[in-house]
């Protein structure tokens, strides 16, 4: 949804052709190296915005060539853009591809988890190397907004590296119980809501029970 709303934000400043809007999005997001959005995605998104009545498209005569289309934001589009600005943004760091790889390597034995961690660490350090080099260029050119964007990327990469260190230190424990918290396989109709979610009081009781499990059990610590 982000590209859609960013395009509305760009159009709220001035109307534009598809090509111009693609360029403007790239400039806003920090260049192709940071966020590579294909022109086709911009054109498709613009078509959807037109269908939704958030953008109006009119043909402008070209210089003998094919007609180009100018996009202009509508009142509804402006309202949608302002509403989007006011919403909080979830980070969703828990949706993690490397985590899935690590756990699946442990459960299937298809790859060495230590090797996976090494590869991932190298990947993250290469990212960090590029990000710090790119940031230095932005400092020289005085582009404070994108310098801040790269600071964010650098901080998250540093956090990922710290997490990797923690995962590596606890790899031995994970080998013993890689998916201990996975739910049992169910068959048939999905259970009803009341069966699925325990009431607050019961959950507290379960926690008490959990605390009695001896601390040396790596699967419960």
């Amino acid at each position: 949804m982000t590209v859609r709303h960013a395009l509305l934000g760009i159009l709220s400043q001035r109307p534009g052709h598809g090509y111009e809007l693609h360029e403007a999005f790239e400039a806003l997001a920090g260049g192709r190296a940071l966020w590579d959005v294909k022109p086709a995605q911009v054109y498709t998104t613009l078509a959807r915005l037109v269908d939704a009545g958030l953008v109006k498209r009119t043909a402008s005569p070209g210089d003998g060539g094919p007609a180009r289309h100018v996009h202009e934001i509508t009142d509804a589009g402006r309202a949608e853009f302002v509403a989007w600005l006011g919403e909080g943004v979830h980070a969703e760091h828990h949706r993690d591809e490397f985590f899935l790889k690590l756990v699946l390597a442990l459960t299937t034995g298809a790859a060495d988890p230590v090797g996976l961690i090494k590869t991932q660490r190298t990947t993250l350090y290469r990212d960090l190397h590029e990000l710090t080099a790119r940031r230095a260029e932005l400092v020289r050119s005085g582009d404070l907004a994108h310098e801040l964007l790269l600071d964010k990327a650098i901080m998250h990469t540093e956090a990922d590296l710290r997490w990797l260190e923690m995962a590596e230190a606890r790899l031995g424990d994970m080998v013993e119980c890689p998916l201990s918290a996975s739910p049992p396989k169910r068959r048939g109709r999905p259970p009803g809501r009341e069966e699925h979610e325990a009431p607050a009081g019961e959950a507290a009781g379960n926690n008490k029970g959990a605390s009695s499990i001896k601390e040396s059990d790596p699967c419960r610590s």
């Binding site: 660490r121 190298t122 350090y125 190397h129 710090t132 650098i154 590296l161 710290r162």
Partner: peptide
């Protein structure tokens, strides 16, 4: 890590040994 990222190469050590 942020300082190490300026380097060309990183050597990781643990317990007196090079591990990566």
């Amino acid at each position: 890590p942020r300082i190490a990222a300026h380097a060309d190469r990183i050597v990781f050590m643990r317990d007196g040994r090079v591990v990566d």
